[in-house]
């Protein structure tokens, strides 16, 4: 339950950032209902808010969503979801539900953890989004509230738990430097795609 409340709070900042980036209330709500994977949603509205093409934003969101495929792989034998359950379960395959499900030893408990976490998160995530979006909707100039400084802080908070070893830290620093270096020469948002391509090549070609 704690994890659902924390994510509700996190959804408030998503609703605020998305509205400040220029997405309508409906578009912001649609992202939380349909996309329902936090980092991708933040990336999409972050790129749009920074003046990037909406398609660059969509591509970045999809790239960030690739890790959910690996989560699905880990979960598929645990959940054993068949028939209508599989498309329904798929929507809930995200960081938090995976963490809760694989932390249980018994498959029945895993399934319960997955579905209960998924349902609680989905409800609070959308409620939080609505609150954040409505609150920001009434603000005429989001810059006055410092909302343009909110997305980088959100990305940093999402990144920090992944940096507990030396290699990820080095990759993160290199990615930041490369993105800044190419930024003046390509359209907004494109540095992200360049960085994604480079890190994919690095991961693919390096020796294990």
């Amino acid at each position: 339950m704690g994890i659902a409340i924390a994510s509700g709070a996190y959804a408030i900042s998503f609703g605020a950032i998305s509205t400040a980036a220029g997405l309508s209330l409906l578009q912001t709500g649609a992202l939380s209902i349909l996309m329902f994977t936090g980092a991708s949603q933040f990336a999409m509205v972050g790129v749009i808010g920074a003046g990037g093409s909406v398609w660059t934003g969509a591509a970045t969101a999809a790239l960030l969503g690739s890790r959910n495929a690996l989560y699905g792989l880990r979960l598929s034998s645990l959940l054993n979801a068949r028939g209508w359950r599989r498309p329904a379960a798929s929507h809930f395959v995200i960081d938090e539900t995976t963490a809760m499900a694989i932390a249980r030893d018994d498959p029945a408990l895993s399934r319960f953890a997955f579905w209960s976490t998924g349902l609680a998160l989905f409800s609070l995530w959308n409620l939080g989004t609505l609150i954040g979006a409505l609150a920001t909707h009434v603000v005429s100039n989001p810059r006055l509230l410092g909302l343009d400084a909110a997305p980088p802080a959100a990305f940093l908070a999402l990144l920090a738990p992944r940096l507990r070893a030396r290699e990820p830290l080095a990759i993160a620093l290199a990615a930041g430097v490369v993105a800044i270096a190419v930024l003046p020469f390509v359209p907004a948002g494109v540095p992200l795609l360049i960085v994604a391509l480079l890190v994919a090549l690095f991961g693919w070609l390096r020796k294990p």
Partner: peptide, 12 residues
């Protein structure tokens, strides 16, 4: 590695 690099690039 992709989310690490993308999130870092977004921060920067």
């Amino acid at each position: 590695l992709i989310p690490i690099a993308l999130l870092a690039a977004l921060v920067a």
